[in-house]
Write a protein that binds this DNA or RNA. Structure first.
Length: 340
DNA sequence: AACTCGGGGGC
DNA sequence: GCCCCAGAGTT
């Protein structure tokens, strides 16, 4: 029995039941693949359900406001995915659904992995997916020492993956090899005893399972301070939408100035305490410092660039995780008694 | 080819 | 702490 046949036999018996495997709708499959980029299945699942419920088709997604889309994406991270999803929806409404791997590659936010996934799942095109799971499974199966995130390594993995899928059912094969990486051939302590490929695996035969795959290390995580002032009044809270490039683009934030450097008018009350919290990104360590000012003037506007959001509307805006956390736990409770 | 972009989970 | 996750876009 050849490799793919053994793999798929294992898959048919051990596959998780996941909603995007129950559909042939290219829209739902596309949506799921974007949500799952660099994201665990368990983390993406509730987002997939909410998106499909809110935007049941590509037309409704394309017609959404950016704020509503970002709010639905809030907390999932890599927010450019949400913005590209929006662009992609408009592109598809304009041009129709792509009908091949090459056409899917033209959709914003769709790269080699996602195009291969959709082309194989929805169009049954014989195109091998290469994601983190496939990198690991193939590097071990063929004992590839070349770094999987180098140009040379990617080329080797791609060739091996393409050879494995050849003349086999593309959708089932791609699902199966990723499922093997997720459930059996895991990064740490893989369960080789139950692996359908344990008699063919070169890494297992040579004792290299725990040293493969090889990866080029990423850069060091730098530390960074963020100073905010939460200015609020009876009317609501002053916020700003992040428009510049960098983290959290198109999400909302507090006023990015420390309270100490604000020119305080006599009747402004600066809270004596400053909230400090750290927030870890994969590539940065953020130290957030938040001052709080109660603004007594019931003015509809503060100054150019900042907008007053009503207390009841704050939940409709997407904030970065640490700011949302702080709002929910420290600021919003203050307003509970004084809601109009 | 190297960097940037989030947040969560596992150990 | 460190690594990884159904990667893509930019420089």
């Amino acid at each position: 029995m050849d490799l793919s046949t053994k793999l798929r036999a294992w898959y048919r018996f051990n596959a998780r039941k996941l909603p995007w495997r129950e559909t042939t709708d290219p829209y739902a499959i596309w949506l799921s693949e974007v949500i799952l980029q660099q994201t665990r299945v368990t983390q993406g699942l509730p987002y997939f359900d909410r998106f499909l419920e809110t935007f049941p088709n590509v037309e409704s997604l394309a017609a959404s406001s950016e704020d509503k889309l970002m709010k639905l994406w809030e907390g999932l991270g890599y927010y450019s995915r949400a913005r590209n999803l929006h662009k992609g929806a408009k592109y598809i409404v304009e041009n129709g659904f792509p009908t091949s791997y090459d056409e899917w590659l033209k959709v914003p936010g769709v790269g080699p992995y996602t195009a291969a996934a959709i082309a194989s799942f929805a169009l049954h095109e014989e195109k091998a997916v290469v994601d983190g799971n496939v990198n690991r499974v193939i590097a071990r199966l063929f004992a590839i020492h070349e770094p999987v995130n180098s140009t040379a390594g990617r080329k080797i993995i791609e060739e091996k993956a393409s050879a494995l899928i050849r003349k086999n059912p593309p959708a089932e094969h791609n699902q199966a090899i990723m499922e093997l990486g997720a459930l059996v051939c895991s990064p740490k302590s893989p369960d080789c005893s139950i692996c359908p490929w344990n008699t063919e695996c070169l890494a297992l035969a040579t004792g290299l399972v725990n040293t493969l795959p090889v990866k080029i290390k990423k850069t060091k995580v730098m530390e960074e301070d963020l100073y905010y002032t939460a200015i609020y009044s009876l009317n609501g809270l002053y916020v700003q939408k992040r428009g510049v490039d960098g983290i959290w683009k198109s999400l909302y934030e507090l006023i990015p100035i420390s309270g100490n450097s604000l020119s305080l008018e006599p009747d402004m009350k600066l809270s004596s305490e400053r909230f400090n919290t750290t927030h870890l990104l994969s590539h940065r360590k953020l130290n957030l410092h938040i001052d709080v000012i109660e603004w007594p003037i019931q003015s509809p506007e503060l100054w150019e660039g900042y907008t007053l959001v009503r207390w009841n509307d704050i939940d409709n805006l997407a904030f970065p995780k640490p700011i949302r956390h702080w709002l929910d736990n420290n600021l919003l409770p203050l307003r509970l008694g004084s809601e109009d």
